[in-house]
Computed example of a mutant assay.
Amino acid sequence: MSLGPRSASEPAWFKSSYSGGNTTECVEAAFVPSGVFVRDSKRPEHPHLTVSAEAWRDFVTGARKASVQDLLA
Rank of each mutant, 00 (worst) to 15 (best):
F14M: 11
H46L: 12
E45F: 05
P44R: 15
N22D: 12
S16P: 01
H48V: 01
S41K: 02
A63V: 12
T50M: 09
S17W: 02
G35D: 11
K15P: 00
N22K: 02
H46N: 07
T23F: 09
A8N: 09
P11E: 09
P5V: 10
E45Y: 06
G20R: 03
V38M: 04
A73M: 01
P11Y: 04
G62H: 03
E10H: 04
S67A: 15
E25A: 15
P5I: 05
V60S: 05
L71S: 11
G4D: 08
G21V: 10
E10K: 04
H48W: 09
K15V: 03
R43V: 02
V27H: 02
A73R: 11
V32I: 15
A29G: 01
K42H: 10
V27K: 01
V38H: 05
W56N: 03
F37C: 06
P47E: 07
L3N: 06
S17D: 09
P5A: 13
A63W: 11
V51A: 01
N22A: 04
E28K: 04
A55Q: 09
R39D: 01
V68N: 07
G20V: 07
T23D: 15
P11N: 06
D70H: 14
D40N: 13
A29N: 00
T23P: 00
R43Y: 07
D58Y: 03
G21T: 13
T24V: 15
V51P: 01
V32E: 12
E45W: 03
A55T: 12
V38P: 00
G35K: 05
A73N: 06
G20I: 08
S7F: 12
G20Q: 09
D40C: 04
G62D: 06
L71E: 10
V36C: 10
V60L: 11
R6C: 05
K15G: 01
W13L: 03
A29V: 14
V36H: 03
R39F: 02
G62Y: 04
K15Y: 06
G4R: 11
L3C: 02
P47I: 02
Q69C: 05
T23Y: 10
T50Y: 00
H46T: 03
H46F: 07
F31H: 15
V60H: 01
R57M: 10
A63C: 13
F59D: 01
A63L: 12
L72D: 10
T24I: 11
L49D: 08
G20Y: 10
E25Y: 09
S52C: 08
A55I: 03
L71G: 14
S17C: 08
S34G: 05
A12P: 04
S9H: 07
V36W: 07
L49N: 04
S7W: 10
A29S: 05
Y18Q: 12
P33H: 10
Q69E: 15
K65R: 15
L49G: 07
T24N: 11
S52K: 07
D70R: 15
G21Q: 15
F14R: 14
K42M: 06
E28M: 06
Y18P: 04
T61K: 12
A8I: 04
T23W: 07
L3W: 02
K42F: 03
T23L: 14
G4K: 11
E45N: 08
M1W: 03
A73C: 00
K42N: 07
K65I: 08
T23M: 13
G4S: 09
V68L: 14
V68A: 14
S52Y: 03
E10F: 07
V36G: 04
P5S: 11
P11T: 05
R6H: 14
D58K: 09
